[in-house]
């Protein structure tokens, strides 16, 4: 098996996540899809790291994880705020800048 298959898997997962972002309305699910895309990217980075025989790819994946953690913290806080103000977690309900 060629390790390229990891890349194909990564692309597939990334596309699935992207479609999820476009299709789902629940903000939390959208967020999860984004996490899926990030993970797919991480998989590609790890595979690249192996292909090139150095650890820079893993370092990049590591940073992606850290930043994703930070993003999750802020993003979930925003979702909580949204729910508090609109009593709904739907991203479509937040289509106006004012309440």
């Amino acid at each position: 098996m060629s390790p390229e298959n990891y890349l194909y898997l990564s692309a597939l997962l990334f596309t699935i996540g992207a479609c999820g972002v476009l299709i789902r309305r629940n903000a939390i699910v959208v967020f999860m899809c984004i996490e899926l895309m990030l993970n797919a990217a991480n998989l590609a980075l790890v595979a690249f790291s192996r292909m090139h025989g150095n650890l820079d790819g893993q370092i990049a994946a590591f940073f992606v994880m850290v930043v994703a953690a930070a993003e999750v913290v802020v993003g979930l806080a925003i979702i909580v705020m949204l729910y508090r103000s609109r009593h709904s977690a739907s991203v479509d309900d937040a289509s106006l800048m004012k309440l």
Binding site: V46, S49, R50, A61, F62
Partner: peptide, 13 residues
């Protein structure tokens, strides 16, 4: 995915 990482030699990750 964690298993795939391990398989790819990214144990820490």
């Amino acid at each position: 995915l964690a298993l795939f990482y391990l398989a790819n030699g990214a144990y820490f990750l």
